[in-house]
C-alpha cells in the first residue's frame, strides 16, 4: 500500500465516517451524555468550594477545570477497542486486512470524522459557560491560547494510539474488553479526569506528572486553564505530549503487526 493511494482513500473514508456518524446521531448523543463524571465532580467540588477555597481551587477554578476536562474527553474519546474486538469476534476483521489501506488509517478516519459532530454538540454550551462563569480561571496569554489546538490534537492522537494498542491485545487474549475497564480506572485517576492531579495524595502527583495518561487529558486542560504554566511551560508540555504520542503510536503499530501475524497463523 503506497502512501499516495492511502492519501487518496482518506477523503472518502472521512465522508463515509461522517455519514455513519450522522446516521447514528441519536446513539451518538447518548454516548456523549454518558460522560457525566466531570459534571458530577463539578457539582461536588463547587459545593465544597462554596465554603472556601479547597487546596487552592476556588469555585470558578473548579468550573474551568471540569468543563475543560469535559471538552477534552468528548473530543478525544475513542471506541476503537470495542470496534476491533467486535470485528474479530464477528470475523469482519479478515475483510479489513484485504483492503489496500492500513487499518490504523481506516479506524482513525472513522474517529476523526466523528469529531465535528462531537464538537458541535459539546462545544457551544461549554464554551459559553466557560466564558461567562470562569473567565478569570482561564489563560489569557495569546501564545498559550495558540497552543490549545496542538495540545488537543496531541491528546487525541495519544489516546487513540494507546487504545488502538489496547485493542490489538484482543489478538492475544480472550477477555481484553475487561482490560478496557481497568484502563479507564487508571486513566481516570492518573489523567486528572476524576480529580486535578495536584490534589492526589502523597507520591501520586509526582508519578502522574511523568506518565502518558497526564498528556491525554490533564495537559490540554492545563494549557486551557493556564494554572502555574505560562507559554513556555505550555510549549514544553505539548512537545513532551507529541513525543509520547509518537512513541505510543510506534508501539501500537508494532503490536498490531505481531497481532495480525498471530491472527494469520491461527486463522482467527
Amino acid at each position: 500500500m503506497s502512501l499516495r493511494s492511502t492519501a487518496r482513500a482518506v477523503p472518502q473514508l472521512l465522508r463515509t465516517g461522517l455519514a455513519e456518524t450522522v446516521a447514528y446521531r441519536a446513539e451518538f448523543v447518548v454516548w456523549m451524555l454518558t460522560t457525566t463524571l466531570p459534571l458530577v465532580m463539578l457539582g461536588l467540588w463547587t459545593s465544597v468550594a462554596a465554603d472556601g477555597e479547597f487546596r487552592g481551587y476556588s469555585s470558578p477554578d473548579f468550573v474551568a477545570y471540569y468543563l475543560a476536562a469535559l471538552i477534552v474527553r468528548n473530543l478525544t474519546g475513542s471506541w476503537v477497542v470495542w470496534q476491533i474486538n467486535d470485528e474479530i469476534r464477528r470475523g469482519i476483521l479478515a475483510m479489513r486486512l484485504l483492503r489496500p489501506v492500513h487499518p490504523f488509517v481506516a479506524y482513525a478516519a472513522s474517529h476523526v470524522a466523528a469529531v465535528p459532530l462531537r464538537g458541535l454538540i459539546a462545544l457551544p454550551v461549554t464554551v459559553i459557560l466557560l466564558a461567562t462563569t470562569a473567565r478569570d480561571s482561564l489563560t489569557h496569554d495569546p501564545l498559550q491560547i495558540a497552543l490549545i489546538l496542538p495540545s488537543l490534537a496531541g491528546a487525541w492522537l495519544l489516546t487513540f494510539a494507546f487504545l488502538f494498542g489496547l485493542g490489538c491485545l484482543a489478538f492475544f487474549i480472550d477477555k481484553s474488553m475487561a482490560l478496557l475497564d481497568v484502563y479507564f480506572g487508571v486513566f481516570a485517576v492518573l489523567s486528572g479526569y476524576l480529580i486535578p492531579l495536584s490534589m492526589l495524595p502523597s507520591w501520586l502527583p509526582t508519578v502522574a506528572r511523568w506518565l502518558p495518561f497526564r498528556f491525554m487529558l490533564s495537559a490540554p486542560v492545563e494549557v486551557i486553564t493556564g494554572r502555574e504554566l505560562g507559554a513556555g511551560g505550555a510549549a514544553q508540555l505539548v512537545a513532551l505530549q507529541w513525543g509520547y504520542a509518537a512513541l505510543i503510536l510506534a508501539l501500537a503499530l508494532a503490536l498490531w503487526r505481531a497481532g495480525v501475524r498471530r491472527f494469520e497463523a491461527v486463522g482467527g
Binding site: E27, V30, W31, L33, T34, L37, V40
Partner: peptide
C-alpha cells in the same frame, strides 16, 4: 444504549 446512560448517571 439508554441503559448505559442510566448507569453513568447512577454513579452520582
Amino acid at each position: 444504549n439508554l441503559t448505559y446512560l442510566l448507569g453513568a448517571l447512577f454513579d452520582t
